[in-house]
Each structure stands twice: as structure tokens, then as C-alpha cells.
Design a protein around this nucleic acid. Structure first.
Lengths: 207, 207
DNA sequence: AATTCTCTGTTGCAATTGCAACTATTTCGA
DNA sequence: TCGAAATAGTTGCAATTGCAACAGAGAATT
């Protein structure tokens, strides 16, 4: 993402229609409002996308890291719940409107060209992440979800041993299964000799 | 998608690096090969993305319609299975390589600018579809999956009554649940007065 | 018009999962 | 450095789900 680095470094002397803001942990970064077509890019830090449903239940829908692209422009916003992005650490976020990508500004600055290319690249990468998650979520048992996800991590690292990118609690959320049921299944997989595990390090023992 | 129409109509006198091909039902459109960075756009017709795993099991991973964008550039391709796109009806498909989006051709034709903007727009729309699917798949019970999906369809149509966009068999695939278990749950929802249903038409009876 | 194929609908049963309710351990902030 | 969160780990039990195996209705193909 050299392109994004370029953007960050040149943000000051760029068009006024794109903004960079800094947030402290626990601050509200944005709320998804239909038809606003807002696009956000996480430059540094982390945040959670949170849904409050009508019963007031809180639900972590997504998690964002550096270079992640998000915002209501990417999301099916429907009326009966509110989606809010909350900083889980201090962070810097870039804001722009989707329309801005299609219209050239008067100055015709290099910024636009670079920005469009970057957004496309970030979006493509985002799509790959989403497809990964869909592939995993579409498995029907916890065992299959775990093994599918492990196999993806393994082939990404070119190694039978790899580090989980988050805590076991968060892994259960990512797989959308009950944490205790997932722990049970991890134990089964270990006892049956499919994997071994110490902390967040997993080793695949088959094939 | 006027942009895409423009592309289709001007495909003949465009760069040679983008191709339009016609396929008959059941023909192989493409196979996902790592690092090829191929992008495909379905101009007309329908196709299935199919995975063959090591045991030879066949699995429909995704379904594509008009204006859908797909290809290995969007997908986490890992070594132990093959992903193939098969036409489920006669169709026209546009092929290009991802790099092509970033590099201007010598002629500097209008084609490039339009194409990049279109691809970005198609990708954004694709992302919204994916987020919808993730939202639905991340519900833990069949009942919740159904109600979540119904609620999205309902708010999209601005109506408590709406048509399912596919057969009940395909709905079960989309929700990634056993079809018979889903039928059972649909019956429960009907008996308990949450919905009514005739054919593919669903009516929400609550709130 | 007959046949094949796909889709809908149903049910019993076994396996899997979520839920609740704990304890132990680690991390983090005041 | 002490206490509070967050994380990891465990288990019994009830509810949900997948699976297998049907039958019938509708489409599509020849």
C-alpha cells in the first residue's frame, strides 16, 4: 500500500473534500446513515462496528484494522437497527464520500487518480477477506468451520504451524459460534490428533 | 449501470486487452488460478462457482447473475481445492486482468477511465451483497437466519410482502443450512404466526 | 405423452450446538 | 501492586440441527 502512504503524506495539501481525523479509544468514529455514501479508511488503530438492535442488544458486527476500508457505502443499512463504529484504540481515519470518486475536482490533482486506484485496491482486498469469512461461515459444523479457517491460515503462511490473528474469544465471534462449544471442539480435534495447540499457536497434524 | 452498457456497446473498438466471450449452458467459463489476477464481469446469463475438494465432493460456493463481478482476483485461492465457474445458462462474460486497471494503455482511450469507475462501482455493490450474506450467516439459528434475511428483503422492497429471489432449495444453500431443517423452521414460523407464505411470496406478520 | 429432473414437503432419530453456570489464569488500568 | 476486566477452560442438559429416506407436484426434455 505505497499508494495509501502517498495519500497520508500528502493529505495536508490535498482537496478539502477528503478529511483525516484522529480519534481516542472509545470515541465514536461514525454512525452508518443511509444514502450518505460515506467511505472510511482506517489509517492506524483499531475499531469495532457495533449494532444496537431494537431490544438494545449490542453485537460486534465487524472489526477494523490498519488499511481496512469501511463505511455505510459498503453496508446494507436497514431501518430497524443502528450501526456505529467505535474506536477500540486511538486511531486515524480518512473520510470521503463515494461520489467524490467519480467526479474530478477542479484542480485535477494527482490525488484523485491515486485515491481511486487505492480505494479499488483496498476494496478488492476487503472482498477477499469477506469471501474468506463467507467460506468459513458457510460450513455447517464447528469442526468444519475451524478446519476450513485453519487451512486458509496455513496456506497463507505456507506452513502447518501458524498464529491465530486474534484471541479464542474473538475467533468464536469470527466463526459465529458459541465460545464454549468451540473450545469443546478444539479439545476434540486435539484429542483425535488433528491439531495441536499452545496458546494462539496452532499446528495441523494431518496430511 | 449505464457505464457498463457503454462498455458493452463499445467493446468492439476497444483495447485488445479486454475480451468478451459467449458461453453455452454447462460450459466452463473459467478456473480460478492463483496469481493470475483475473477479473470477470457477467454481462448476461447466470453461472455457478463450484468447488471440487480432494474427496471429489462438489459444492456450489456462489452464484452469479447479470452485472456480477467475480474471478480469482476476488477470492482466497488455496491449494487443496479447485474453483471452477460453470455457465448455468447461455451467457456473455467480460475478461480482464487486474493490472490492466492500474496501467493506462497507449491509446489512452475513454475505455480505461470508464472501466475503472465501473469496476469500482460493481465491486462496491458486490461488497454490499457480501455483507448482507455475512450478516445472515452469522446468525446462529435457522430461525434467526430466516428472519434476518426476510427483514433485509422487506426493507429493500419497502413492504411486509416480498418475493424470494430464488427457490427454497437455493435459499437453504444461501443460508447454508439443511433444506429439510429449514422447511421445518418455515413451518414453525408459519404456525406461530410470524409469517405467512405462498410459493415464493413471504409476508411478515409481526410488528 | 412419457419420462426424467428439480423442487417442495414431511418425519424420526442421532449428533451437534447453544446456554448457563462455574473456576482458573492472564492482562490491564487505577 | 492491587483489583477489576478480559480471556481461557470445563461440563451437564435441553434445544436445534443435520441426515436419511421418503412421497408428491411441477418443469423441462425428448
Amino acid at each position: 500500500m505505497d499508494e495509501i502512504s502517498y495519500l497520508i503524506n500528502n493529505i495536508e495539501n490535498s482537496c478539502s473534500r477528503i478529511q483525516k481525523k484522529h480519534f481516542l479509544k472509545n470515541e465514536n468514529i461514525t454512525t452508518y446513515i443511509q444514502k450518505r455514501n460515506q467511505i472510511c479508511i482506517m489509517l492506524s488503530g483499531t475499531a469495532d462496528l457495533i449494532r444496537y438492535d431494537l431490544n438494545g442488544n449490542k453485537d460486534i458486527v465487524d472489526k477494523f484494522n490498519g488499511n481496512d476500508i469501511f463505511g455505510e457505502a459498503f453496508y446494507p443499512v436497514h431501518t430497524n437497527n443502528e450501526l456505529t463504529v467505535i474506536a477500540t484504540s486511538d486511531c486515524d481515519v480518512l473520510f470521503l464520500l463515494q461520489d467524490y470518486l467519480y467526479k474530478k475536482c477542479k484542480q485535477n490533482c494527482k490525488f484523485h487518480t491515486t485515491l481511486s486506484a487505492s480505494i479499488l485496491e483496498l476494496t478488492l482486498r476487503n472482498t477477499i477477506h469477506q469471501n474468506t469469512r463467507i467460506e468459513v461461515l458457510s460450513k455447517r459444523t464447528i469442526r468444519e468451520k475451524l478446519l476450513t479457517y485453519f487451512s486458509i491460515l496455513s496456506s497463507k503462511d505456507f506452513s502447518k504451524t501458524f498464529l491465530l490473528p486474534f484471541s479464542l474469544t474473538n475467533l468464536a465471534d469470527y466463526l459465529s459460534v458459541d465460545r464454549s462449544a468451540m473450545m469443546r471442539e478444539l479439545k476434540n480435534l486435539t484429542n483425535e490428533g488433528f491439531i495441536s495447540k499452545s496458546g494462539n499457536r496452532i499446528k495441523l497434524l494431518y496430511k
